[in-house]
Simulated assay, not measured.
Amino acid sequence: MVTIADVARHAGVAPSTVSYVLTGKRTISTETSDRVWESIRSLGYRPRGAVAPAAAGAIGVLLPLREGVNVAVAMRFVRAVVDAARRRERDVLVVTADEGPAGVLRAAESAVAGLVVMDVETDDPRVAALRACPTPSVLIGVPMDPCGLTCVDLDFFAAYALCVDHLADRGHRDIALLGAPRSVYERRTGYAERGVAGFSATALRRGVDFVVRACEPDGLAAARLLAEHGEITGLVVHNEAALPAVLAGARSRVDVVAICPDEVAQRTKPTVSSVHVPAEDLGRRAVDLLVARIDGAPPHGMELSAPVLTVRD
């Protein structure tokens, strides 16, 4: 059995360096990391403790339930993956532990036919493992460098831009973004970073003054924001858990547009204008592309869904 020490000798590094590459807990130079991954690939190293799914040919879902992850939102994607997989007579193994690159290898060793990877970070440490691993994969989310990968997601840059244009067209000159919890930004989750970029760039283009704030599920950030910035009349909210509290605490003159599934926006009182997050469509599309990869298709590249805004009360 190949061990970490074997990989370290083959790559000419210390065993601790191999561990850091596998866990992503310390930054390692690109040159050294590439050398370690090449040794892992050449020697066929796999971590111990892999768990076999119920049947061969299953699909693995890597969904680390980390701080700030909205479980209800994540489960919409997982349900869509499960439904699509079941229609293809494939079981699904969901791995919620945050094991970084080692988790990719461990899941691959468990005999899954392919992997759906979620909660993708801009500099996701799992990317190198996904490229090195022979098991096909599809990411729901987009890292900074998607080369050689298959990725699907909503175009969050365009979605946030659409919300800003909507508010600016309605005459608002001072707007704010209430986004994900702070921990999501701290680990540089891809959708959140792309969204802020789209929000900021469009506000600058439209000549609109803007503020960006992280928002915890309790929604208290909205009250603090409006108390500090009485000039704000438009809010973009991308935080499904906090949305009811934000709406309850917002002054009647504040115009709110949300980024959330349509059914969430339709349940609020008053119903809120929103850009739909197509979790079900993205989950099904991820399975379609993954099955194509399992059948031998090359990486598909990046596929972003165009945002659609629905105006309500």
Rank of each mutant, 00 (worst) to 15 (best):
94 V>F: 10
22 L>M: 12
140 I>F: 09
304 L>F: 07
273 S>I: 04
121 E>I: 04
143 P>Y: 01
188 R>T: 13
34 D>W: 00
100 G>Q: 05
16 S>G: 12
240 E>Y: 01
29 S>V: 02
91 D>T: 11
81 V>S: 05
207 G>H: 09
61 V>W: 01
290 L>D: 04
282 L>Q: 02
219 G>D: 08
267 R>P: 01
162 L>I: 03
45 Y>Q: 09
48 R>N: 10
261 P>H: 11
123 D>H: 14
235 L>Y: 12
152 V>R: 06
259 I>P: 04
225 L>Y: 14
46 R>Y: 03
48 R>V: 05
102 A>V: 06
239 N>Y: 07
42 S>H: 10
294 I>N: 08
46 R>W: 03
105 L>A: 12
81 V>G: 05
26 R>W: 01
136 P>H: 09
174 D>T: 03
260 C>H: 02
309 L>F: 03
67 E>F: 01
208 V>A: 12
117 V>E: 06
267 R>N: 09
124 D>T: 05
217 P>C: 15
300 H>Q: 13
126 R>W: 13
52 A>L: 13
158 A>I: 00
50 A>W: 05
178 L>C: 11
302 M>S: 12
116 V>P: 07
186 E>H: 14
13 V>D: 08
214 A>E: 13
131 R>V: 14
301 G>T: 04
294 I>A: 08
49 G>I: 11
15 P>R: 11
22 L>C: 08
120 V>R: 07
247 L>T: 04
111 A>R: 15
166 H>I: 04
17 T>E: 05
274 S>I: 00
231 E>P: 07
219 G>T: 12
239 N>T: 09
222 A>P: 00
135 T>M: 09
216 E>A: 14
161 A>V: 01
71 V>D: 03
262 D>R: 11
162 L>K: 12
135 T>V: 15
187 R>M: 08
45 Y>L: 10
105 L>P: 02
251 R>G: 15
265 A>P: 07
75 M>Y: 12
29 S>F: 06
256 V>L: 10
259 I>L: 15
220 L>A: 15
282 L>F: 02
141 G>D: 07
177 L>D: 04
291 V>N: 06
11 A>C: 11
271 T>C: 08
212 V>M: 14
171 G>P: 03
288 D>T: 13
23 T>V: 00
67 E>L: 03
158 A>L: 02
76 R>V: 01
65 L>Q: 14
176 A>I: 10
147 C>A: 12
41 R>I: 00
1 M>I: 01
88 R>Q: 14
245 A>F: 13
247 L>S: 00
214 A>W: 09
280 E>W: 06
129 A>V: 11
204 L>Q: 13
24 G>T: 05
23 T>C: 00
140 I>H: 09
281 D>R: 14
3 T>Y: 05
234 G>K: 08
102 A>I: 03
126 R>Q: 14
308 V>W: 04
310 T>S: 12
299 P>Y: 08
62 L>S: 13
191 Y>W: 11
41 R>L: 01
80 A>C: 02
36 V>G: 10
19 S>M: 00
103 G>I: 11
248 A>T: 15
131 R>F: 13
196 V>Q: 10
